[in-house]
Design a protein around this nucleic acid. Structure first.
Lengths: 331, 331
DNA sequence: GCTGATAGGTATATCGGTAACCTAACTTGC
DNA sequence: GCAAGTTAGGTTACCGATATACCTATCAGC
């Protein structure tokens, strides 16, 4: 492998001069030698050794993307879109992305340190560990969808509360007053909790109540669904906290002989590309995942490059996308 | 940050001794000092610096995963599943995955060298460049879904030809004799080419012909679809070379007032999880993406750790998964 | 008592860069 | 004409590990 020294020798200068040229250090090298060196670099196929660079300059140009550790995290379209989007953006800014899966903060800390990563973005929740992560690591950390009470935490999220409200209002406007909720565990996930809160609030404004017996888990259990539908006054609509869940629900309802939206309406959350191609196309609360990914990547990089950059809590807007899975009962 | 030297000092031994303990070099350190050192390592939170390690040992324990460079590569479920699956497996084997997007082989070579990556897996095609990639890089390279004529190339793929045959036979068995094909460009993609060949072959065995006018591009153009359906004898079924395409097609047909499978049948390829939740659930040719990912990851790692390991061309089987998108015309 | 093997270490060079400091020649202002 | 500043470099000491060679007890065997 060609090293700095090889280029230096070939050009008849010191290694430092070559280093300066390669790193575009302004005005320390004459235009003449600069061109000569660049020519040799290209000719001999020199590529800087990032490890060596990282070791001596104390900056790796590496950013970790950290997800929870259960199975294949990119199985979920949301994670895949975020990860791919961030990687793409980082590469444009000449950073490389390193993927890690981890559950506990000690493992994360070990991983971050081993490559002396410049910064990290977290997908998913390390709620109880956030404080420790901040304490143990002096590098910029960016969380996503976190509702931590710890101040001074970089975060990129969306307005989940409003998302819940929008879903509720849309259902109400279409004449639904008996409504069920299906989603992740609100106690465990602050994201779900906020969507649920907003949802309840907007329902409450029209005196519609969401009872606990109308709240289903996102594992989409056929029996549970049947039980809800057999209530004295069965729900005419479901709000699912994720499109994936909504799609599974539509399928489950169908297998019970219930048509969406004719017999029952469904509204989802996320606006994944695939819900446009489902049958029926899903009405859903849209978040801009591409933009979220870019903002998260941009935020870590800004924090890395400018140590005085202020901590940010970015909250993106959400909006209703109307398709064909909600029936208008008033019509 | 805690370094080897710090531990050495605290333990009253040389750095080399600590290095041996950390790297589990067999029997050069007494059990006594070993334990003492391990204790200190844990206590002081020592994490080896991978850059330094890579520099001096000439092995980075890093594997590159390389995809094409158009936009967000993880937008496609197939890429996401492969990438996630490989990363997961690599981490278990204590390798880290580095993601890169690239189109030309020079960029790839630069990226591989800059971190002195130990090996690389390619998702997607660098067909014309494979030879150069092999020549320029002395590290193990694993390709996926490649049909290169270059011998001595590690590859993990599936039996695309058989997949095409299975699809054709299933349609024939269900009484379809007027059939259309929708998929990527067969000239550009050897994968599509082989699926198409197998498909044609099996159709031919029953004297069914697939004319060029019944072959559509995977951009799912509504006008093109309409044109095919307005032929004197319109097709009763479509074979799509990817589930994603199949789903878009179903939606397009629906928008033309054509019901699947009542008015027209569709068969896909891949068996993505989401096609089970589409309406109708999609009949498709299944490939085991999780296993493919694991085999690809396992292959690079084997090649890295055993320089004498033989080159392999792994071909995984495919199978038909019957759901509800193909109508039996004989019934 | 001497040789040789083995266990349990140490010392030093090196991997490929960069930071920080040094220097010589030339320019510029006064 | 000279101090001060600029330009275009070179020198040297690391960064944090590992490879390699070398050292020193201890003990068995003859």
């Amino acid at each position: 492998m060609v090293t700095l020294k090889d280029i230096a020798q070939a050009a008849g200068v010191s290694a430092m001069t070559v280093s300066r040229v390669v790193n575009k250090v302004p005005s320390r090298v004459s235009e003449d030698t600069r061109r000569r060196i660049l020519c040799l670099v290209d000719e001999m196929g020199y590529v800087p050794n990032s490890s060596a660079r990282s070791l001596s300059s104390n900056s790796s140009h590496l950013i970790a993307i950290i997800t929870g550790s259960l199975g294949n995290p990119l199985k979920y379209p949301y994670n895949a879109l975020m990860t791919g989007g961030m990687t793409h953006y980082m590469q444009q800014k000449s950073y490389s992305a390193l993927f890690y899966q981890a559950t506990d903060y000690r493992a994360v800390t070990r991983q971050l340190r081993s490559w002396r990563v410049d910064g990290a973005v977290f997908l998913g929740l390390f709620d109880s560990d956030m404080r420790k992560l901040r304490e143990d690591n002096s590098i910029p950390l960016v969380f996503t969808d976190s509702y931590s009470t710890i101040r001074q935490l970089n975060n990129v999220g969306i307005d989940d509360y409003k998302g819940g409200e929008l879903a509720a209002r849309h259902l109400l406007q279409n004449g639904h007053r008996e409504i069920a909720f299906i989603g992740g565990n609100a106690e465990e996930s602050p994201v779900v909790r906020n969507r649920l809160r907003g949802f309840r609030r907007a329902l409450g404004q029209e005196n519609v109540l969401l009872t606990d017996s109308s709240i289903l888990s996102d594992d989409v259990d056929l029996n549970a669904i049947r039980r809800v539908l057999e209530k004295p006054i069965p729900p005419t609509a479901f709000f699912a906290t994720a499109d994936i869940t909504a799609l599974k629900l539509v399928k489950a309802l169908h297998s019970l002989g219930i048509r969406v939206p004719r017999d029952c309406s469904v509204i989802g959350f996320d606006n994944l590309e695939q819900v446009e191609f489902s049958m029926p196309p899903l009405t859903t609360i849209a978040q801009d995942i591409d933009r979220k990914a870019e903002l998260a990547a941009d935020l870590v990089i800004r924090m890395i490059e400018d140590k005085t950059a202020p901590v940010q809590n970015i909250v993106l807007d959400v909006e209703l996308v109307e398709r064909e899975s909600v029936r208008n009962l008033k019509a």
